[in-house]
Design a protein around this nucleic acid. Sequence first.
DNA 1: AAACGCTCGTTGACCTAT
DNA 2: TATAGGTCAACGAGCGTT
Length: 567
Amino acid sequence: MSQVSVLDVFEDMPAQDSTSFPDPVGAEGGDCVVCGDKGSGFHYGVYSCEGCKGFFRRTVTKGYVKACKSGSKCNMDMYTRRKCPECRLRSCRAAGMRSDCLLTQAQCRSKFLYRKKTEAPKSDHPISSPNQEVPVQSPSNQSTGTDVQQQQNQVSNISNQSEPCSLGQVSVPSTSSTQPFETVPEPVSFSQLNDSNGTNLLDEIMSSFMDFGSENPAVLTRNDSTGSDDMLSFLALLANDTQSIDENDLDPSIGLFDEVPATTPIQNNSSIEHAENLLSLQRGEANLVVQANVSASTNGQASEENSESSTSDTPTESVNQTTNTQGLKATLQLSPKHQSIDEEQATEEHTCSLLFGEGPGKIKRIARPDAVQNLSPEYQAIVSEISTFRKKTFARDHKMMSDLFKRSSQDISNKERQARFVAHMGVVVEKMVEFVKTVVHCFQDLCIEDQIAVVKASFFDCCMIRVPVVLANFNNGVHVLQRILQAVHTEVFNATLMKWYEGMLDLKIDMTTLDLLQCVIVVSPDRPNIKGRDILEQSYAQYIECLTCLLQSRLPREPLDVSTPAQ
DNA sequence: AAACGCTCGTTGACCTAT
DNA sequence: TATAGGTCAACGAGCGTT
């Protein structure tokens, strides 16, 4: 049976303006504009019957239809509509039905999770134990969506695979000391990431990311189905799940919080060392990695911590750390009332000292030391690889950020500030390309068009989650960012953006979780015009599962899982 | 070749959720 | 209230058997 993909059908049809919602097509109370049957309302942008509504939803979700045998010119009415799915789809498209009105998998998933959470009140022990062997599956009596069910089954199947280094199509390097990113082939270079029509990737990304002089920031109003909205809804859900987490709720018997002075690159990197050490310990390596982290703490004490102290805090230290729970927002001086305009007019030297040495701010991150150990070997490998990559690039990235901050403190015009910001974002794009090439396993399996589409579509999302967390590593970082953004965005947009950043900071997300989340974003299969969707879906399920396991291990009492309690 | 039964995918009316 | 997605009985195509 020959089939034709939905994308092919849509490409043949007249292109629709994807940047704005046209007026709904058809007359309310009339007939279906697709087949003439009795309409039931506006569905996906046109007045249509239940049949065409359901057909369009199923077909777009499925991604293909039976090919027409009569030259794609079948007449379409309420009697012949069942005869030729391809022509029916073309009629739906011609009538103005919009595929971007369908909820994406991520949105469905968010909806499912929200429903599940509201229907099942939080129990005392929703998760029996942070064990990766707990199957991720939904009870049949709670399943409300076949897609989600299939997705979870897929996740479950992947998690049950026996081969530790083979996850479907995704190969996972071993946890040996070799640096996996050195052997990863280079599927696409930054210079290659241009459209065939000559559009520059950076220009395109920046045009959607920035709104120079625009009264209506494109970022906030865009509806081009790049997946950002989906990720925002997902993150909103994630934020909703974790916002009530109190650090004191966590088990104090274990070193719960990695109190990271936000002053030196080395100390900011300590959570990476945590993971490394934990993995070393898990492998039974006798030699503990000695962390010679030279502290430049506020009292001037130089501290040396070895892996033992970093992986198993003493009870006394834990108590001290858990009781010292100043709000992150206050620490970062998010509120302008804590930071006068005069204070920000610091000299370059003063800025540097704030960034690297004498700042009082300390960031508390959730970093449950046993979390990584509870992961399955393949997920440990993923975490290890991410950590290794970040460890390798940390110093360079930190210097890049600090250079940006230093320059932002200089007394320059807004135009110059804009130019510098654009230049900086160019580097950020390159950095992201390097990340996906090195860390995201399935990336090399995608065709060049898909690689480009994936990077383009996920760049904004990644920036949205990374910026606030990265800035949390810098004293006064949020405030410096405000100065930069004021030069490139409108006031309304910046207010919304800062509100989003504030919410992200409330998550107290650690770098490993952040990088895992970035992997999830990058491989999100909801991107438009992706040919290798299957590849992305497999990888997506894998990263989701890994992220879920990690969060379950770190926050075992919080119902942020997509699985059910152990039977 | 025709009739029959089985499986599985599709349809659409109706439902719930937001 | 409008419009998403979900559900499930009914339907029909395809296939093997008689």
